[in-house]
Design a protein around this nucleic acid. Structure first.
Length: 705
RNA sequence: UGGUCCUUAGCUCAGUGGUAGAGCAGCCGGUCGAUAACCGGCAGGUCGUCCGUUCAACCCGGACAGGACCAACCA
């Protein structure tokens, strides 16, 4: 009230003059009833309504000061509560300040920094603002202006730290102009706009967000009334408040001194040193610089100072809240200095929230601490969680989510373990074979690996790590575990150790291991280092690091398209056959698929292709026998025990008949296939024909699987 | 209140204007030479809600709800 300079009404709302026992009251029409009830008065007569604009400029007497104030018109007036007539003190609050400017009202700063009214203020001089409240109310009561008095609780800005209500005061500030000054063919805002357009954003919507902020931001207020921080080395004239004419030069000198002697160079140097004879007429500002200016200057203080760093930076990375903060202050300072952004690209991430998408807070009890996760599950799992998450939005974190992450880790780790185990007797330099000497399945595995390689590289290049981990997981589960490695076990465990069939498999596995370990290294760093050391037959301490490597360059397979198309088909065939094996298993007829024998009947292209596989077909299907026959004339007619299957592929579906029977052979203890035992070797009567050959003869020959 | 964005199976994520996909989890089974593993099968979603555009929408437009971040307001 001591700072009151006006009363605001809404231009479009209706106002009424109400006759009461206490005289005439001006009230907003929709609020009249509530107000009268609050005052305990009856409306004896009502005039109006008139519009708010009609009241503009009316002079009102201040309730206890010898002052006339004006009725103002502003759209910030609402009818939520009160009378529709708003007390306005331009020194206290944004709305009041702005409307005060429009009407050129004086801004009365009647309160000092401690919240105490200045000595010259009538009625409340020397009182703290809270104590003054009672005095003001009492004064209103005494002069007969108090209509009602009721304590009211409503949300009001509070100090985030002390939780005490904040008093708004109008204060002089320093601004960096966004639109007023042109140079290089544009204002700071225009240049900033161009710099935003020249920046790459991850994710792309960051562009819209930063653009909008540049568009909407007001002039940059860079002064803060704080005792710590970087000082604004400004001197203002004691009478006029005008900046010293030599400010730019002085600021340069101060900066120079501070860079040599530290911040004390400013605080401990008397004004005479900077201003000479002018010192008596000027006072030094005590304001500090906006802290965003500090952090926004890292491109000057760090990037441009350290020889190992470049400017502009390839990437600035921060939480999405920094569009308003660091990203923007860095942009504006750099644009002002150099005309371009201090970064080539911006990457932002969201914030960690719980499983339900709620922000973590102590009161909700849903906080998951990274340190705890590290301690319990290890850094690799924590990183894997981050890398599995689409961090462009919120990052959900909960017990269940971590459980899933650990499952994924186990899968990746186990795959590596299998690969390492099967490379134990393999030395690429001595035992390695070129892809031309591999079986077609091995070459196909290489093709699959190359496909993953492409996805992984692209994913890392664009910082989309969750795509990478997702793909690597399916690679390990589907391509390797459920397909390639599943088939490969027979060859790895039963072919002669140094045979071409086995060395070919190991050569492919070697390339896969090389690629996989490097793909995983950025995420599973410890695990990858262990794998890398194991591959060298050394301890992690003695071995060279995987982080000294680049991506593995996989060999190129000739006629990749043909090979790939053919094996896509075989893979589909395998899945189809295994699915149809399931009823036999459920019926208890077989356990392992090796207990089954399969006959496929087809014609034309399909028949030729199947025949080309030869005996390798049974290794593909993981059955003990797989026969191929040309279809008879009655093909396609339902017969018991025979299923018609369709195998999709690039050249269209292939139809074939599938017949499955339980093998009548005996299980070979070495290769587990069920065979008519040949027993050529007297010492090993139980061994099957090919095991005997592999052990004592020329060894089996394989071309495809 | 304004700005930017998110919402697809229990979880993490794909996805295309035209019958919804994967991995993991779940259930059932197999195997026992990746075993604090491995393999197979099955089940599971009115693609946040509502309204439009369209012959046809998870995919386009609008509104709403919930959530995240930023900025503001609270007489």
């Amino acid at each position: 009230m001591p700072a009151n300079r006006g009363v605001s009404v809404h231009p479009e709302l209706g106002y009424e003059l109400v006759e009461t026992a206490r005289g005439l009251l001006l009230l907003q029409e929709t609020l009249r009833a509530a107000a009268m009830q609050r005052y305990g008065l009856e409306a004896q007569r009502v005039w109006g309504p008139c519009r708010g604009t009609d009241l503009e400029g009316l002079l009102l007497r201040h309730p206890f000061l010898d002052r006339e104030v004006t009725v103002l018109v502003g759209t910030h007036v609402t009818v939520d509560a009160g009378t529709g007539l708003v007390h306005t003190a331009p020194a206290h609050g944004v709305d009041d300040y702005q409307i005060g400017r429009r009407y050129q009202l004086p801004v009365d700063n009647l309160m000092d920094d401690r919240g105490v009214f200045l000595p010259e203020v009538p009625l409340v001089a020397g009182l703290k603002v809270w104590a003054a409240n009672d005095v003001v109310i009492e004064a209103l009561r005494e002069t007969g202006h108090l209509m009602a008095h009721k304590p009211l609780e409503h949300s009001y800005p509070h100090c985030w730290r002390h939780k005490t209500p904040i008093i708004f005061r109008a204060t002089s500030q320093w601004f960096i102009v966004m639109d007023g000054v042109e140079r290089n063919g544009g204002t700071l805002r225009a240049e900033a706009r161009r710099a935003v357009d020249a920046t790459r954003f991850y994710p792309a919507w960051g562009h819209a967000r930063l653009s909008a902020m540049i568009e909407n931001r007001p002039d940059w207020c860079v002064s803060r009334q704080r005792v710590w921080g970087v000082p604004l080395p400004f001197f203002v004239h004691r009478e006029t408040g005008v900046l010293h004419p030599d400010t730019e030069h002085i600021a340069g000198q101060v900066a120079e001194a501070v860079s040599v002697r530290g911040i004390e160079a400013w605080f401990s140097t008397p004004a005479e040193h900077w201003l000479g004879a002018d010192a008596d007429h000027y006072r030094a500002l005590t304001d500090t610089l906006d802290v965003w200016f500090d952090s926004g200057s890292t491109h000057a203080a760090v990037l441009r100072q350290r020889p190992e760093l470049g400017f502009p930076a390839q990437l600035y990375l921060e939480g999405s809240d920094q569009h308003r903060g660091w990203f923007q202050s860095s942009l504006l300072t750099s644009v002002a200095l150099h005309g371009h952004a201090p970064y080539e690209a911006l990457l932002t991430h969201g914030f960690v929230v719980d499983g339900q998408g709620r922000k973590m807070s102590k009161s909700l009890g849903n906080v998951v601490v990274p340190q705890t996760v590290m301690k319990e599950l290890g850094a690799d799992n924590l990183r894997l969680w981050v890398a599995s998450t689409d961090y462009s939005g919120e990052l959900c974190l909960s017990r269940e989510i971590l459980d899933r992450v650990v499952e994924a880790y186990r899968r990746l780790r186990n795959t590596l373990r299998f690969l390492l185990a099967n490379l134990g007797d393999f030395d690429m330099a001595h035992d390695g074979l070129p892809p031309e000497s591999w079986l077609t399945l091995d070459r196909y595995a290489l093709v699959l690996t190359r496909q993953v390689d492409e996805v992984v590289r692209r994913g890392y290049d664009s910082y989309e790590f969750h795509g990478v981990t997702q793909r690597l997981l399916t690679f390990c589960s589907e391509d390797l575990g459920a397909f390639y490695l599943d088939i490969l076990k027979d060859r790895l465990y039963t072919a002669p150790p140094g045979s071409q069939a086995r060395r070919a498999a190991q050569s492919a596995l070697w390339h896969i291991t090389q690629a996989l370990t490097r793909w995983l290294a950025p995420v599973l760093t410890f695990t990858a280092e262990e794998v890398w050391a194991t591959l060298q037959g050394k301890t992690v301490e003695a071995a060279s690091s995987v982080f000294l490597e680049s991506w593995h360059e996989l060999p190129v397979v000739t006629e990749e398209a043909v090979l790939s198309a053919r094996w896509d088909r075989w893979r589909a065939l395998r899945e189809e056959v295994r699915r149809h094996l399931e009823p036999l298993r459920t019926a208890g007829a077989i356990g392992s698929s090796l207990q089954a024998e399969v006959t496929l009947r087809a014609g034309g292209e399909a028949l030729e292709a199947l025949q080309s596989l030869g005996d390798d077909l049974r290794f593909l299907l993981l059955t003990s026998a797989a026969r191929v026959e040309a279809w008879a004339d009655d093909i396609g007619r339902a017969r018991s025990g025979i299923t018609l299957i369709e195998i999709p592929g690039a050249e269209g579906n292939w139809r074939m008949e599938l017949e499955m029977v339980v093998s009548q052979g005996h299980k070979c203890p070495r290769c587990w296939h069920y065979r008519e035992v040949v027993g050529e070797h007297p010492d090993h009567p139980g061994l099957c024909d090919r095991c005997t050959s592999n052990l004592f003869g020329a060894g089996e020959v394989r071309h495809h699987a």
